[in-house]
Design a protein around this nucleic acid. Structure first.
Lengths: 149, 149
DNA sequence: GTACGACCTCAACTTAAGTTGAGGTCAAGC
DNA sequence: GCTTGACCTCAACTTAAGTTGAGGTCGTAC
């Protein structure tokens, strides 16, 4: 096992499919060198990078957003504590608003159970959408912001 | 303004595009009669139905899931408090687990800020994915369950 | 010397939730 | 009697995040 990793090795260690790694590379999320026989050779730091991608995806970020955040990370060096701190603080804030949004939706849902009040003007649930706009830019929900384009 | 509503009227009152209403109809989420000139004529109850669809989408449910839940609702009658109660309780539970998941993710993210511990075996964040499986079926995250197919 | 496994590229397919556009009908207003 | 607006159908396009498959190259193992 050399210093550099093959796609197969990265796939195995991260649980991400080879095809997905190729895809991430096309999208600029990760980088590789090539061996003499044109095989991808990844620095070991790619493992953490892919790990970070996975975490961000679970948090609901799109690959495009992740790519932006990753600009702030070193390309080939292993991610340090400070690097990670900058990025994770940002993501935590996004998670926070997402959680706040879903919580508010749930509370209204709970309050409205059985009340039958779904009238367009009066029900807080119905008007929840208005509040989305006030939370500012970015994806508040993983799905459902499309209609605001 | 007759008892029945045209697509245009429904679109205006619900804020949902005409093309989306057509789409919902193809997917079986809503139903319409036709006028003599083949225009769609919706019962007034469609407004609440569409409202419910919007709420569910904000909660992160897919149209397929919403369609299933809507099976339990009366087709053409206005949705009663009891009808709505059955459905919303179910959705609240789904929202609850989604919130729990994101909260756990955020807390781990917060705990890990700056720790640089992203090692594959030790970091709780890295292994968050394992826990997804334990929460049972259904979409735990709006995105990100795909890799479990 | 050939079969095998891991890798390569590139194009096409997948799903969700719609949107967009082409081509056509119909009733009302001027 | 023609234009306009609202509606109709159907097909094709869009984005995200990949997957699948075809066809080809290496290096190693038997």
């Amino acid at each position: 096992m050399a210093t550099e990793l093959s796609v197969g090795e990265v796939a195995e260690r991260t649980g991400v499919a080879v095809s997905a790694l190729h895809f991430y590379e096309r999208k600029g999320l990760i980088r590789s060198e090539r061996t003499a026989s044109n095989h991808r050779a990844y620095p070991r730091s790619v493992i953490r990078r892919v790990t970070v991608i996975q975490i961000a995806q679970r948090a609901g970020l799109s690959l495009a957003e992740i790519a932006m955040a990753l600009e702030a990370l070193p390309k080939d060096r292993t991610i340090s504590a400070e690097d990670w701190g900058r990025v994770s603080t940002n993501w935590r804030d996004q998670l926070d608003s997402r959680i706040a949004l879903l919580t508010s939706l749930r509370d209204n849902l709970t309050g409205c159970i059985g009340c039958g009040c779904l009238s367009v003007k009066e029900c807080p649930l119905v008007n929840e959408g208005d509040r989305l706009a006030e939370l500012g830019a970015g994806p508040h929900l993983l799905a459902g912001t499309k209609d605001q384009r």
